[in-house]
Nucleic acid binder design. Structure first.
Lengths: 156, 156
DNA sequence: TAAGATTGATGTTTCAATCTTT
DNA sequence: AAAGATTGAAACATCAATCTTA
Protein backbone atom coordinates (compact mmCIF):
# COMPACT_ATOMS: atom_id res chain seq x y z
CA UNK A 1 0.00 0.00 0.00
CA UNK A 2 1.33 3.36 -0.99
CA UNK A 3 -0.30 6.72 -0.36
CA UNK A 4 0.50 9.81 -2.33
CA UNK A 5 2.53 12.30 -0.33
CA UNK A 6 3.96 9.74 2.07
CA UNK A 7 7.65 9.92 2.82
CA UNK A 8 9.57 7.39 0.79
CA UNK A 9 12.46 7.04 3.22
CA UNK A 10 12.24 4.67 6.18
CA UNK A 11 9.73 5.94 8.72
CA UNK A 12 10.77 7.77 11.79
CA UNK A 13 10.77 5.40 14.73
CA UNK A 14 7.76 5.79 17.00
CA UNK A 15 8.50 7.63 20.26
CA UNK A 16 8.32 4.46 22.33
CA UNK A 17 10.71 2.71 19.94
CA UNK A 18 13.25 5.45 20.57
CA UNK A 19 12.49 5.24 24.26
CA UNK A 20 13.02 1.46 24.26
CA UNK A 21 16.33 1.86 22.40
CA UNK A 22 17.59 4.54 24.79
CA UNK A 23 16.60 2.56 27.87
CA UNK A 24 18.17 -0.59 26.45
CA UNK A 25 21.55 1.11 26.26
CA UNK A 26 21.23 2.88 29.59
CA UNK A 27 19.91 -0.10 31.54
CA UNK A 28 22.62 -2.36 30.18
CA UNK A 29 25.33 0.18 30.99
CA UNK A 30 24.09 0.70 34.53
CA UNK A 31 23.44 -2.93 35.42
CA UNK A 32 26.63 -4.22 33.81
CA UNK A 33 28.57 -1.47 35.55
CA UNK A 34 27.11 -2.54 38.88
CA UNK A 35 27.93 -6.19 38.26
CA UNK A 36 31.51 -5.43 37.22
CA UNK A 37 31.89 -3.24 40.28
CA UNK A 38 30.71 -6.07 42.54
CA UNK A 39 33.31 -8.40 41.03
CA UNK A 40 36.01 -5.77 41.32
CA UNK A 41 35.23 -5.10 44.97
CA UNK A 42 35.47 -8.82 45.64
CA UNK A 43 38.94 -8.84 44.10
CA UNK A 44 37.76 -10.91 41.14
CA UNK A 45 38.49 -10.53 37.42
CA UNK A 46 36.03 -9.04 34.91
CA UNK A 47 32.90 -10.72 33.65
CA UNK A 48 34.47 -11.55 30.29
CA UNK A 49 36.70 -14.06 32.05
CA UNK A 50 33.70 -15.68 33.68
CA UNK A 51 31.89 -15.93 30.37
CA UNK A 52 34.76 -17.80 28.74
CA UNK A 53 35.30 -20.13 31.69
CA UNK A 54 31.59 -20.98 31.87
CA UNK A 55 31.30 -21.65 28.15
CA UNK A 56 34.32 -23.93 28.31
CA UNK A 57 32.92 -25.85 31.27
CA UNK A 58 29.62 -26.30 29.50
CA UNK A 59 31.44 -27.57 26.44
CA UNK A 60 32.86 -30.49 28.42
CA UNK A 61 36.29 -32.11 28.30
CA UNK A 62 36.82 -31.45 24.58
CA UNK A 63 36.67 -27.71 25.06
CA UNK A 64 35.85 -25.24 22.30
CA UNK A 65 37.40 -23.72 19.24
CA UNK A 66 38.11 -19.98 19.44
CA UNK A 67 35.71 -19.26 16.59
CA UNK A 68 32.95 -20.94 18.62
CA UNK A 69 33.66 -18.64 21.56
CA UNK A 70 33.55 -15.79 19.11
CA UNK A 71 30.05 -16.75 18.00
CA UNK A 72 28.67 -17.51 21.44
CA UNK A 73 30.04 -14.45 23.23
CA UNK A 74 29.61 -12.00 20.35
CA UNK A 75 33.30 -11.08 20.39
CA UNK A 76 35.56 -10.09 17.53
CA UNK A 77 38.29 -12.48 16.47
CA UNK A 78 41.29 -10.49 17.72
CA UNK A 79 39.55 -9.92 21.05
CA UNK A 80 39.06 -13.63 21.57
CA UNK A 81 42.66 -14.25 20.65
CA UNK A 82 43.97 -11.77 23.20
CA UNK A 83 41.47 -12.64 25.89
CA UNK A 84 42.54 -16.29 25.64
CA UNK A 85 46.18 -15.22 25.80
CA UNK A 86 45.48 -13.45 29.11
CA UNK A 87 43.53 -16.41 30.49
CA UNK A 88 46.30 -18.77 29.45
CA UNK A 89 48.94 -16.55 31.04
CA UNK A 90 46.87 -16.72 34.26
CA UNK A 91 46.80 -20.52 34.03
CA UNK A 92 43.02 -20.66 33.65
CA UNK A 93 42.81 -22.24 30.19
CA UNK A 94 45.03 -24.39 28.03
CA UNK A 95 45.26 -24.48 24.24
CA UNK A 96 46.40 -27.37 22.10
CA UNK A 97 46.34 -27.88 18.38
CA UNK A 98 43.22 -29.35 16.92
CA UNK A 99 43.84 -32.86 15.59
CA UNK A 100 41.26 -32.63 12.79
CA UNK A 101 42.01 -29.12 11.55
CA UNK A 102 45.55 -28.00 12.09
CA UNK A 103 44.70 -24.36 11.44
CA UNK A 104 42.77 -24.27 14.67
CA UNK A 105 43.05 -25.28 18.29
CA UNK A 106 41.03 -26.67 21.15
CA UNK A 107 40.70 -24.49 24.24
CA UNK A 108 40.00 -26.22 27.54
CA UNK A 109 39.52 -24.93 31.07
CA UNK A 110 42.07 -25.95 33.71
CA UNK A 111 41.39 -26.93 37.33
CA UNK A 112 42.36 -23.40 38.36
CA UNK A 113 39.91 -22.05 35.80
CA UNK A 114 37.08 -24.16 37.16
CA UNK A 115 37.97 -23.05 40.67
CA UNK A 116 37.87 -19.38 39.71
CA UNK A 117 34.55 -19.78 37.93
CA UNK A 118 33.11 -21.34 41.08
CA UNK A 119 34.40 -18.50 43.24
CA UNK A 120 33.01 -15.88 40.88
CA UNK A 121 29.51 -17.28 40.65
CA UNK A 122 28.28 -16.40 44.17
CA UNK A 123 29.33 -12.78 43.70
CA UNK A 124 27.91 -12.69 40.20
CA UNK A 125 24.58 -14.23 41.12
CA UNK A 126 24.15 -11.91 44.10
CA UNK A 127 24.73 -8.93 41.82
CA UNK A 128 22.20 -10.21 39.27
CA UNK A 129 19.65 -10.74 42.01
CA UNK A 130 20.27 -7.28 43.46
CA UNK A 131 20.33 -5.30 40.22
CA UNK A 132 17.87 -7.28 38.10
CA UNK A 133 15.82 -9.67 40.23
CA UNK A 134 14.82 -7.17 42.89
CA UNK A 135 13.90 -4.55 40.32
CA UNK A 136 11.49 -6.92 38.62
CA UNK A 137 9.81 -8.46 41.65
CA UNK A 138 6.12 -9.29 41.57
CA UNK A 139 4.16 -10.47 38.55
CA UNK A 140 5.97 -12.01 35.59
CA UNK A 141 8.12 -8.97 34.89
CA UNK A 142 11.38 -10.87 34.31
CA UNK A 143 9.73 -13.23 31.84
CA UNK A 144 8.02 -10.40 30.00
CA UNK A 145 11.29 -8.46 29.77
CA UNK A 146 13.21 -11.50 28.56
CA UNK A 147 10.56 -12.32 25.95
CA UNK A 148 10.68 -8.81 24.55
CA UNK A 149 14.47 -8.66 24.49
CA UNK A 150 14.48 -11.97 22.66
CA UNK A 151 12.51 -10.40 19.84
CA UNK A 152 15.37 -7.98 19.28
CA UNK A 153 17.65 -10.92 18.51
CA UNK A 154 15.37 -12.44 15.88
CA UNK A 155 17.06 -13.05 12.53
CA UNK A 156 15.57 -10.79 9.87
CA UNK B 1 8.52 -14.68 57.19
CA UNK B 2 11.37 -17.08 57.79
CA UNK B 3 11.28 -20.82 57.34
CA UNK B 4 13.69 -23.12 59.06
CA UNK B 5 16.19 -24.66 56.71
CA UNK B 6 16.03 -21.85 54.18
CA UNK B 7 19.26 -20.50 52.78
CA UNK B 8 20.31 -17.32 54.52
CA UNK B 9 22.48 -15.99 51.72
CA UNK B 10 20.93 -13.94 48.94
CA UNK B 11 18.64 -16.12 46.89
CA UNK B 12 19.72 -17.52 43.59
CA UNK B 13 18.16 -15.48 40.83
CA UNK B 14 15.12 -17.13 39.28
CA UNK B 15 15.79 -18.68 35.85
CA UNK B 16 13.95 -15.92 34.03
CA UNK B 17 15.91 -13.27 35.90
CA UNK B 18 19.13 -14.80 34.61
CA UNK B 19 17.55 -15.08 31.19
CA UNK B 20 16.53 -11.40 31.26
CA UNK B 21 20.05 -10.39 32.31
CA UNK B 22 21.71 -12.45 29.59
CA UNK B 23 19.36 -11.17 26.90
CA UNK B 24 19.82 -7.57 28.09
CA UNK B 25 23.54 -7.79 27.44
CA UNK B 26 23.24 -9.68 24.18
CA UNK B 27 20.45 -7.56 22.72
CA UNK B 28 22.28 -4.36 23.56
CA UNK B 29 25.52 -5.66 22.07
CA UNK B 30 23.85 -6.77 18.86
CA UNK B 31 21.63 -3.74 18.30
CA UNK B 32 24.32 -1.23 19.23
CA UNK B 33 26.75 -3.06 17.00
CA UNK B 34 24.32 -2.82 14.10
CA UNK B 35 23.73 0.89 14.70
CA UNK B 36 27.46 1.67 14.90
CA UNK B 37 27.99 -0.34 11.74
CA UNK B 38 25.32 1.68 9.92
CA UNK B 39 27.04 4.92 10.92
CA UNK B 40 30.44 3.57 9.96
CA UNK B 41 29.22 2.47 6.54
CA UNK B 42 27.79 5.93 5.98
CA UNK B 43 31.22 7.41 6.73
CA UNK B 44 29.96 9.00 9.96
CA UNK B 45 31.58 9.13 13.40
CA UNK B 46 30.54 6.91 16.31
CA UNK B 47 27.35 7.24 18.32
CA UNK B 48 29.15 8.81 21.28
CA UNK B 49 29.72 11.91 19.18
CA UNK B 50 26.04 12.10 18.32
CA UNK B 51 25.06 11.77 21.96
CA UNK B 52 27.20 14.72 22.98
CA UNK B 53 26.10 16.91 20.09
CA UNK B 54 22.43 16.19 20.77
CA UNK B 55 22.70 16.90 24.50
CA UNK B 56 24.43 20.17 23.77
CA UNK B 57 21.76 21.21 21.27
CA UNK B 58 19.02 20.38 23.75
CA UNK B 59 20.80 22.44 26.37
CA UNK B 60 20.45 25.56 24.24
CA UNK B 61 22.85 28.43 23.69
CA UNK B 62 24.40 28.26 27.16
CA UNK B 63 25.69 24.75 26.56
CA UNK B 64 26.55 22.30 29.33
CA UNK B 65 29.21 21.71 31.91
CA UNK B 66 31.31 18.58 31.39
CA UNK B 67 30.09 17.10 34.68
CA UNK B 68 26.53 17.40 33.37
CA UNK B 69 27.45 15.42 30.26
CA UNK B 70 29.06 12.90 32.57
CA UNK B 71 25.79 12.44 34.48
CA UNK B 72 23.52 12.36 31.45
CA UNK B 73 25.59 10.03 29.28
CA UNK B 74 26.84 7.78 32.08
CA UNK B 75 30.47 8.43 31.18
CA UNK B 76 33.49 8.60 33.44
CA UNK B 77 35.18 11.95 33.98
CA UNK B 78 38.39 11.30 32.00
CA UNK B 79 36.35 9.88 29.12
CA UNK B 80 34.28 13.04 28.86
CA UNK B 81 37.43 15.13 28.99
CA UNK B 82 39.06 13.25 26.13
CA UNK B 83 35.89 12.89 24.08
CA UNK B 84 35.40 16.66 24.24
CA UNK B 85 39.02 17.15 23.24
CA UNK B 86 38.40 15.07 20.11
CA UNK B 87 35.17 16.92 19.31
CA UNK B 88 36.90 20.24 19.82
CA UNK B 89 39.79 19.19 17.57
CA UNK B 90 37.19 18.35 14.91
CA UNK B 91 35.65 21.80 15.31
CA UNK B 92 32.31 20.43 16.51
CA UNK B 93 32.23 21.95 19.99
CA UNK B 94 33.82 24.92 21.71
CA UNK B 95 34.80 25.32 25.34
CA UNK B 96 35.09 28.55 27.28
CA UNK B 97 35.62 29.21 30.94
CA UNK B 98 32.55 29.39 33.11
CA UNK B 99 31.96 32.92 34.38
CA UNK B 100 30.37 31.82 37.67
CA UNK B 101 32.73 29.00 38.58
CA UNK B 102 36.19 29.37 37.21
CA UNK B 103 37.08 25.74 37.92
CA UNK B 104 34.73 24.67 35.20
CA UNK B 105 33.78 25.47 31.65
CA UNK B 106 30.81 25.77 29.36
CA UNK B 107 30.75 23.48 26.34
CA UNK B 108 28.70 24.61 23.35
CA UNK B 109 28.04 23.04 19.97
CA UNK B 110 29.32 24.86 16.88
CA UNK B 111 27.55 25.29 13.55
CA UNK B 112 29.60 22.41 12.17
CA UNK B 113 28.53 20.32 15.16
CA UNK B 114 24.85 21.04 14.53
CA UNK B 115 25.34 20.20 10.88
CA UNK B 116 26.96 16.87 11.68
CA UNK B 117 24.22 15.97 14.15
CA UNK B 118 21.64 16.67 11.47
CA UNK B 119 23.46 14.49 8.97
CA UNK B 120 23.79 11.64 11.45
CA UNK B 121 20.17 11.53 12.52
CA UNK B 122 18.67 10.06 9.30
CA UNK B 123 21.16 7.20 9.38
CA UNK B 124 20.70 6.72 13.11
CA UNK B 125 16.92 6.76 12.99
CA UNK B 126 16.80 4.32 10.10
CA UNK B 127 19.00 1.93 12.07
CA UNK B 128 16.79 2.23 15.15
CA UNK B 129 13.72 1.57 13.06
CA UNK B 130 15.33 -1.43 11.37
CA UNK B 131 16.85 -3.07 14.42
CA UNK B 132 14.34 -2.12 17.12
CA UNK B 133 11.10 -0.83 15.60
CA UNK B 134 10.63 -3.64 13.10
CA UNK B 135 11.41 -6.30 15.70
CA UNK B 136 8.67 -4.99 17.99
CA UNK B 137 5.92 -4.35 15.50
CA UNK B 138 2.29 -4.95 16.45
CA UNK B 139 0.75 -4.53 19.90
CA UNK B 140 2.41 -2.31 22.45
CA UNK B 141 5.67 -4.23 22.48
CA UNK B 142 7.98 -1.20 22.41
CA UNK B 143 6.12 0.44 25.28
CA UNK B 144 6.12 -2.75 27.32
CA UNK B 145 9.85 -3.24 26.73
CA UNK B 146 10.63 0.37 27.63
CA UNK B 147 8.52 0.21 30.78
CA UNK B 148 10.30 -2.92 31.96
CA UNK B 149 13.76 -1.56 31.19
CA UNK B 150 12.88 1.56 33.12
CA UNK B 151 12.35 -0.52 36.23
CA UNK B 152 15.99 -1.59 36.04
CA UNK B 153 17.03 2.04 36.44
CA UNK B 154 14.96 2.65 39.57
CA UNK B 155 16.94 4.04 42.47
CA UNK B 156 17.16 1.51 45.29
C1' DT C 1 38.78 19.74 52.23
C1' DA C 2 36.10 18.90 48.28
C1' DA C 3 34.44 19.74 43.37
C1' DG C 4 35.55 20.24 38.49
C1' DA C 5 38.55 18.97 35.18
C1' DT C 6 43.00 17.29 33.01
C1' DT C 7 47.07 14.24 32.44
C1' DG C 8 50.38 10.04 32.56
C1' DA C 9 50.69 5.33 32.61
C1' DT C 10 48.69 1.21 31.54
C1' DG C 11 45.47 -1.97 29.63
C1' DT C 12 42.01 -3.08 26.20
C1' DT C 13 39.66 -2.76 21.77
C1' DT C 14 39.75 -2.11 16.97
C1' DC C 15 41.31 -2.17 12.13
C1' DA C 16 44.03 -3.85 8.80
C1' DA C 17 47.56 -6.89 7.51
C1' DT C 18 49.59 -11.37 8.00
C1' DC C 19 50.33 -16.28 8.45
C1' DT C 20 48.95 -21.13 8.07
C1' DT C 21 46.09 -24.74 6.62
C1' DT C 22 41.99 -26.20 4.03
C1' DA D 1 40.53 -18.46 -2.68
C1' DA D 2 38.63 -18.89 1.96
C1' DA D 3 38.62 -20.20 7.02
C1' DG D 4 40.94 -20.04 11.50
C1' DA D 5 43.84 -17.57 14.15
C1' DT D 6 47.57 -14.11 15.41
C1' DT D 7 50.04 -9.60 15.32
C1' DG D 8 51.32 -4.35 14.80
C1' DA D 9 49.71 0.04 15.14
C1' DA D 10 46.40 3.24 16.48
C1' DA D 11 42.31 4.54 18.99
C1' DC D 12 40.03 4.36 23.14
C1' DA D 13 39.13 3.34 28.12
C1' DT D 14 40.60 3.13 32.84
C1' DC D 15 43.01 4.11 37.20
C1' DA D 16 45.51 6.92 39.97
C1' DA D 17 47.68 11.21 40.52
C1' DT D 18 47.56 16.08 39.73
C1' DC D 19 46.10 20.83 39.23
C1' DT D 20 43.01 24.72 40.03
C1' DT D 21 39.36 27.09 42.23
C1' DA D 22 35.39 27.01 45.65
Amino acid sequence: MHMAGMATMPDDPAPDVIRAWTLLVRAKTRVLGAVEEALRQAGLPPLAWYDVLLELRRAGHCGLRPYELERRLLLAQPNVSRLLARLEAAGLVARHVCPEDRRGQMVVVTAAGRDLQERMWPVYRAAIEQHVGRKLESDRAATVLADHLERLLADP
